[in-house]
Simulated assay, not measured.
Amino acid sequence: MMDKLIPIKTINIYKGVDLSDRLEEFQSIDLTINKNIKKILIIKWGGMGDLVMASGIMEDIALAFPDSDIDLNTRPQWAPLFDNDERFFTVWGSNNNALSSFGHAFKWIKKVIGYKYDLIIDLQTNDRSRIYLALLKFFHTNCVHIIGNHAVAPYTIYPKSSIKINNPFQMMQRTINSIGIKTQTFRPNLRVGDNVRNNALQILKKNNLAAKAYCIFVCGSNVRGHLKRWGIKNFSELSLLIEQKYSLQVVLVGGLDDEKECMAISERNKTIINLCNKTSLSELNEIFNQASFIVANDTGPAHLASNTLTPMIVITGPTDPRRVKPLGDHIVAIQPEIECKNCYQKECNHHSCMIGLLPEEVLKCIGGIV
């Protein structure tokens, strides 16, 4: 049984934090002038949203070291996002479940030693990546430059300033600033090949979706983050309001975890086109690009959508929009003002931050971005 809803005082709108370059504040050394850096490894194992956000940082690394071979170590399911990306010499995967095993750790260390990297940039910077890199230094005493976000082992270079930062992009920005890389790219930078773009256009054509004649709902989330979902009732009611006000076709997208949610929404409004789990991640980029606007939960595909310039509303409640809002001035995050916001809980007996946010309020916010 659910507890009584907590009243919502108002709706807060977040446009993002200041991402200005802070090279002078964080630079400890300038490695960009070191001609001996021929091979670079970038580590980023996180979720899809984290990786998409990091792609802008990766662009700045590539610009700073144009003559170096750059490899990316990420989770296997995200590797297709970098297919045919000329910035990377190799993209190789590390399964998230296997990362916790010593057997995998030693295989990883052996592989890294074999590639003979001159510079390792840890954009993950968590306990697991630090353990892996500490083991690497133990077994490989002639270790390369290892860059991280904190002034702790095993990093050989770290930011000059240790002021507290909570925004993940700013953390990665500080990491590359520490070695003299200037931040020039302040939004995602994923490359999409012509073949993928053409596949996406065929999907749109098959469903009679003309450019800017539809909007997209990203209405799911990882099953472990189900509290981040605005809900079946709210999304279905918003779809009717959008059809009435904007005469746009509503399209649902998502992955395997989102199928039940999307199916339930489309059953409530039979005019909706449900493309959930019917596209690849890379194809979604062009489908987002052709949309009039996007309404999304705080979830990985919302960050993927930020690789385009399509206006987007991201609905947050249990997560902090100052940390999770996708990058871009064309994107706003909205969050009900409620005493328990930013709780990051996995379970809740009232879910007021989402249930209490009315479709009419979201419709008003859409009017501010289109």
Results as ranks from 00 to 15, higher is better:
Asp3Trp: 02
Lys4Val: 07
Ile6Arg: 12
Lys9Ser: 14
Gly16Met: 07
Gly16Ser: 11
Arg22Glu: 15
Arg22Val: 07
Glu24Asn: 13
Glu25Pro: 09
Ser28Ala: 07
Asn36Arg: 13
Lys38Ile: 10
Lys44His: 05
Lys44Gln: 12
Lys44Cys: 00
Lys44Ile: 02
Trp45Glu: 00
Gly46Thr: 04
Gly46Asp: 00
Ala54His: 04
Ser55Glu: 02
Glu59Gln: 14
Ala64Trp: 04
Asp71Gly: 08
Asp71Leu: 11
Asn73Tyr: 09
Thr74Phe: 00
Pro76Leu: 10
Gln77Arg: 03
Gln77Phe: 07
Ala79Gly: 00
Pro80His: 03
Leu81Trp: 02
Asp83Phe: 06
Asn84Leu: 13
Glu86Ser: 14
Phe89Glu: 14
Thr90Phe: 06
Val91Ala: 03
Val91His: 04
Val91Cys: 04
Val91Gly: 00
Ser94Leu: 11
Asn95Pro: 02
Ala98Gly: 01
Leu99Val: 09
Ser100Met: 10
Ala105Met: 12
Ala105Glu: 03
Ile109Leu: 08
Lys111Pro: 04
Val112Gly: 07
Val112Asp: 08
Tyr117Gly: 12
Tyr117Thr: 11
Ile120His: 01
Asn126Ser: 08
Asn126Thr: 00
Arg128Val: 04
Arg130Ser: 15
Ala134Trp: 08
Lys137Glu: 05
Phe139Cys: 09
His140Arg: 06
Cys143Val: 09
His145Cys: 06
Ile147Lys: 06
Gly148Thr: 01
Tyr155Asn: 13
Thr156His: 08
Lys160Asn: 04
Ser162Thr: 14
Asn166Ile: 08
Phe169Lys: 05
Gln170Val: 10
Met171Leu: 15
Arg174His: 02
Arg174Thr: 10
Asn177Ala: 08
Ile179Arg: 00
Thr183Ile: 13
Gln184Glu: 15
Gln184Leu: 14
Thr185Pro: 06
Leu190Trp: 01
Asn195Phe: 13
Asn198Glu: 15
Ala200Ser: 15
Leu201Asp: 12
Leu209Gly: 09
Ala210Gln: 09
Ala213Asp: 10
Tyr214Pro: 07
Ile216Gln: 03
Cys219Asn: 07
Gly220Ile: 03
Lys228Leu: 02
Asn234His: 04
Phe235Ala: 00
Phe235His: 00
Phe235Ile: 03
Glu237His: 01
Ile242Cys: 02
Gln244Ser: 11
Gln244Gly: 00
Gln244Thr: 07
Gln249Trp: 01
Val251His: 01
Val251Phe: 03
Asp257Met: 03
Cys262His: 01
Cys262Phe: 01
Lys270His: 13
Thr271Phe: 04
Asn277Cys: 08
Lys278Glu: 14
Lys278Thr: 11
Thr279Met: 09
Leu281Gln: 01
Leu281Tyr: 05
Leu284Val: 07
Glu286His: 08
Glu286Phe: 05
Gln290Lys: 13
Ala291Met: 09
Ser292Asn: 08
Ala296Asn: 01
Ala302Asp: 04
Leu309Met: 10
Leu309Thr: 14
Met312Phe: 04
Val314Met: 14
Gly317Val: 12
Pro318Asn: 15
Pro321Trp: 08
Pro321Thr: 12
Arg323Leu: 15
Leu327His: 06
Leu327Gln: 07
His330Trp: 11
Glu337Leu: 15
Glu337Tyr: 12
Asn342Val: 10
Cys343Ser: 15
His351Met: 06
Met354Ile: 05
Leu358Gln: 12
Pro359Trp: 08
Pro359Met: 02
Glu360Ser: 13
Leu363Gln: 10
Ile369Gly: 02
Ile369Cys: 12
